[in-house]
Design a protein around this nucleic acid. Structure first.
Lengths: 334, 334
DNA sequence: CTGAAAGCGCTTACAG
DNA sequence: CTGAAAGCGCTTACAG
């Protein structure tokens, strides 16, 4: 079963490959009606399907972009990816998604592989550890957009949440409800990851604004597996928190799990607010107050920006930080 | 900023392109140590990155596969995709995911686009409406694996759940707990989609086994937006069900939402069991009894099968239906 | 052990 | 209005 190529179509239609190519690219300007019909016919009869790999080689573009997320386990990543895919598919671009799994080595491998595959651009949730690669892409004017995490030094586009505002929304809400001993729990700060840092600093500032003093034993950053234990510890402090802010969806799940284990009544004994919208927020009893990132918008914007850079690579190196505003969904848990 | 090509490396190292190519493909058999070193050096100095598009054109393979899911909103799809990606990345394959959004036209477009991009194979959750395309791929011995849905007529590989067993597990469990008026709710049956059909037939058989008579007003297939309303209707029947089986995750969400709206106590007034594992199953109060599909295994198997077909395309047209066994997670909701 | 040549399937500038 | 030719960046069989 030999593959049908353009040459076969040309022969069948008794024209040259050039003319077939013109036809396929809809350059009908000077094409005779008769010629056109013969080509159409040949394509139909032979069941010809163009080979985009060959076209890509010649045109030096693949209509494919890569997305490398730091950790796909976050629902935020999934939502952003979905928005990117929807937008790109509309524009007839394909998307290859890679999960760096918070491992800078994997990120490096994927960046290299995707560039070898000649993707037209890259959207990256950067681990932050491959500065040389980031630098090189920018220097080469390779279309690049960062999401979720800022790398200060780099002149590059970045789409992310106004993280301090997110914590502020949560703390304002809790303070308004009369909570005074507000804790925050986030995943590890070992590497300096923007949203974690900023959500904690936003939390501190907001506490101050309300005249509440930040207590170090209420501020915890740790790995998922030890998080549940820590919630329990916090709750058995001489003065336990009366509210807890989950800095992301994974922290929220751990907190809810601890709360269930310990049979703690929410919000009477402990109020809970989560940053990141989760599928079950309104189904839960009590339903969960969340601060939502406009993930869909952010993904779409990142994709639109990237496709634009694809046309205007000279603009890759412009620093452009797009902050999105979070929104509060007050529910029963606070 | 011109791209560095193999020719540049060859010139810099004072060897031919052929030799550079040999080097890159690790065919060191007859290569002089000196030559090798010069090539290494040239690659480093010039910062050469191979162009896989060119290689793909020549080798007629792209090390990329496509995945087309019928509807990405199901958590099962997401889980399977993740497993496929993990497996493929391990094997240095790339994955392009497309969401047909339950639209056969979109599915057609994606199949054609992905084939034009010369993917080495396709994993499809088929909408079931593009028989001509499926046929053609099989006839051409194009590596193809179906997931989740069987297309009876076609000799092809398919990975799916033992759906009847899933319903049976759920019904057995409910009957054992003393429930007698067991309802089932699934998404629309308009198109004959395997899991929906089989889960209903499995449910009927299981009821019979327990000497329970299936009642038509307990068996509902409808679109998501009308589902919540229907749950409420069911509950106001003269003889309302005492248990309800959600045939998939989306049905479960609607049921939970209705239950919350109506303030129904679970499981006292109504037991709930869902097919498909959901992230919040054990966090919920009450925690939700589920029947889990081994999604991760299934995705991995589909990917492994596909990559194998990639090497042995003559085996594409062998009919091979792989059924996976579901498992019950009894929790508080039943 | 290494190189020259052909070719993968397209596109495009140019000639006529 | 259409065709011949060159070329995209590789790989590979073959010659020496």
């Amino acid at each position: 079963m030999k593959k049908v190529t353009m040459r076969d179509v040309a022969e069948h239609a008794k024209v040259s490959k050039s003319t077939v190519s013109q036809y396929l690219n809809k350059r009908y300007d000077y094409m005779g009606a008769e010629t056109k019909k013969r080509i159409e016919e040949a394509i139909r009869v032979l069941g010809y399907q163009p080979n985009y790999v060959a076209r890509s080689l010649k045109q030096k573009k693949t209509s494919t972009i890569g997305v490398i997320v730091a950790n796909i386990l976050h629902s935020f990543s999934t939502q952003v990816i979905r928005a990117i895919e929807d937008y790109c598919h509309e524009q007839d671009f394909h998307v290859i998604v890679c999960n760096a799994d918070d491992d800078p080595e994997k990120e490096r491998k994927y960046i290299e592989m995707l560039r070898a595959k000649q993707v037209d651009g890259l959207i990256v949730f950067p681990t932050g550890e491959n500065l040389d690669l980031y630098d090189r892409m920018i220097e080469e004017k390779f279309p690049l957009v960062f999401v979720d995490r800022l790398i200060d030094q780099l002149p590059v586009r970045c789409v992310l949440l106004d993280n301090e505002a997110a914590s502020e929304l949560a703390v304002d809400h809790l303070a308004d409800q009369g909570y005074r001993r507000i804790a925050i729990m986030t995943t590890s700060l070992e590497r300096k990851i923007t949203p974690r840092i900023e959500r904690i600093s936003g939390y501190r500032k907001a506490l101050e604004k309300h005249g509440l003093e930040p207590k170090e034993e209420y501020i915890k950053s740790l790995e998922i597996p030890s998080m549940k234990e820590e919630v329990k510890n916090m709750l058995s402090l001489p003065e336990p928190p009366d509210a807890i802010l989950a800095a992301n969806d994974m922290a929220l799940m751990e907190i809810l799990s601890a709360v269930k284990d310990e049979n703690i009544r929410v919000p009477e004994e402990l109020a809970v607010v989560g940053i990141d919208e989760v599928s079950f927020a309104s189904l839960f009893t009590p339903s969960i107050t969340t601060v939502e990132q406009p993930a869909f918008l952010m993904g779409k914007e990142a994709a639109a920006m990237l496709l634009e850079l694809t046309e205007k690579p000279e603009r890759v190196a412009e620093k452009h930080v797009l902050r999105y505003e979070p929104s509060l969904h007050p529910r029963e848990s606070s």
